[in-house]
Design a binder for these strands. Structure first.
Lengths: 330, 330
DNA sequence: TTGTAAGCGTTATCAT
DNA sequence: ATGATAACGCTTACAA
């Protein structure tokens, strides 16, 4: 051990966690020894003795697309600022995901669960095990903390906006059962229809979240003679697919068909036509998750905290608004 | 401890790493005790005793954009398949990044360094400390392993393609000093000009990697009376910015100006006009990094391994090729 | 087959 | 101010 090398003993520990309760002389001696032997204290030993990891985990259902990467960015940044390492895991709806999450849980001081990654039972198991948990974009469970974005009311506003443009047969494209957020948006869509009683509405058209899913679903839809004249998509990727399908079907957007997305991914403003969508503060989502988790870990707070982040309607042209591209969006 | 609870002692350890050298009867007894007490072995204890973490780290210079997220995806997937946890870190060019990386290094069994995250000295320090290192999209250092994508020859091919369309004043937009990849692409660009001697070329126009950087640089460029008639951009985001600037300047792409990108981000095919670019196997980049690192860790291989992944020219319309959008790219 | 005990590298509590 | 020493929770000879 470096201890022998220096001269002293476990005093090295003291100097290492920069306790000032060490004589300047000895401290200096230790520092020299450390430098000479290129000694680094072992995290493992330290963690074992102190009882915590200085690390947290974040688990996603998936990792593809610009959506998650922004969340990771915010999460990593906030965590690093607090000196916490971050472990990342994607469950991919694997059968073993519950085990993976449980496993991750005992490498960290706390964990954030994103969307539909694991069942409520797993969340409860985690909580029972005293693992601090923050739920992101997911219904509350096991009285852990949560962070979400406003979905329902903005979805309603978006749908109403379409009504105001005169569209009459508005469809919702996306599977409300696939993700909690998609479900909320669908509810908002329904709210709008309920408020405007004369509107008829059709059931949600279930489809996956990828562009190709949207394209496929839309092209089927367009074959119908009673095709919708506006489509509210569960996310931007689906909307991109719809745009592709519309072009293929000879439909002009937004004249023949309005299309809206959700997320405001970077590509959205570059589409033809620029996509009307909803911006979510994804960076903040990750950042707040990290902060709330940290708080729960350090303060041992018992009351669950629930945070709702605002979203913002981003009106471009695909809903029938201004036709000319806006130059100065920035 | 659960040991007392069951009946036996450190036999629980044996049964836990499913050693079959335990009598079925006792094993059963232990299993029951484990279930009853909801006992989970501590990773810390285990790691400390065995001397490894079953985790690896990956560090990025940044985390924004679709580029990194694909790499993470591949890396996480391959790591999870091998039962390794993954720690993620973004240095953001922070001053403390060397320290952060060194710090990360002793939480893991090996580390992958992406692009311009840390100086060669840090890599060497890591290697000296016997930390297995894989370098991704970065020049070789400290004789660690590396994975890269083919840049130079494809960049040359891309530039030649532009020549064949008849463009004469081709510019390169992107900072060769900012990233190793950008430097390679610039070299390929030069190679093409050297091969076609009659071509005159201009120095690279340094600019950041984001859309706004590209837009700003391009609009300056367009003000020049000797403006280029084709621009090879260091990545797709820059190219998107150029497209925006071109529209603002009243230039038609590809008639007045050809534009090419790099990466083939999801948005590329949806731009107007669809962007000619270069596809990189980013998923594989992450996956191979994980596999090579794992190999180095387990086999203690001493010879460095260097892998070069192929890239592919994706010809769309922004280079002057077919004008109609291809429907069935898939 | 299974128990005993010596590490693994820290921190923390006592003494001194 | 600093040295012993007992945890921390596991693995792994070595005995029994």
């Amino acid at each position: 051990m470096a201890r022998r090398a220096g001269v002293s003993i476990a005093t090295v520990s003291r100097v290492h966690r920069n306790a000032d309760l060490v004589a300047p002389a000895t401290r200096e001696r230790v520092h020299r020894a450390v430098a000479a032997l290129d000694y680094r204290p072992s995290r493992l030993g330290r963690s074992l003795a102190r009882g915590h990891h200085d690390a947290t985990g974040i688990v996603f259902p998936d990792l593809s697309g610009p959506y998650y990467s922004a969340v990771i960015l915010g999460y990593e940044e906030a965590s690093a600022a607090e000196g916490q390492s971050v472990l990342i895991l994607a469950t991919h709806r694997r059968a073993a995901s519950a085990k993976q999450v449980l496993d991750l849980a005992d490498r960290v001081d706390g964990i954030v669960l994103f969307g539909r990654t694991v069942d409520d039972e797993v969340v409860e198991a985690l909580v029972r095990r005293r693992v601090p948990v923050v739920l992101v974009a997911r219904p509350i469970a096991g009285n852990s903390d949560s962070v979400r974005t406003q979905s329902r009311s903005t979805a309603e506003a978006l749908t109403v906006h379409l009504f105001e443009h005169g569209y009459e047969r508005v469809a919702y494209l996306g599977d409300p059962h696939a993700s909690p957020d998609a479900a909320e948006r669908w509810q908002g869509f329904l709210d709008a229809h309920r408020a405007a009683r004369h509107r008829r509405w059709r059931p949600a058209i279930a489809c996956g979240f990828r562009e190709e899913d949207g394209r496929a679903a839309a092209s089927v839809l367009f074959a119908d003679r009673d095709r919708p004249d506006a489509i509210v998509c569960a996310n931007d990727e689906i909307a991109m697919g719809v745009l592709v399908a519309a072009r293929a079907a000879g439909l002009t957007v937004p004249d023949d068909l309005a299309v809206t997305g959700w997320d405001d991914i970077p590509a959205a403003r570059h589409l033809a036509p620029p996509l009307t969508t909803v911006r979510q503060p994804m960076l903040d989502l990750g950042r707040r998750a990290a902060e709330i988790l940290r708080d729960r870990i350090t303060t041992h707070r018992i009351e669950p905290l629930h945070e709702l982040l605002p979203t913002e309607l981003v009106v471009r042209s695909s809903c029938g608004c201004s036709y000319h591209t806006k130059e100065a969006e920035e």
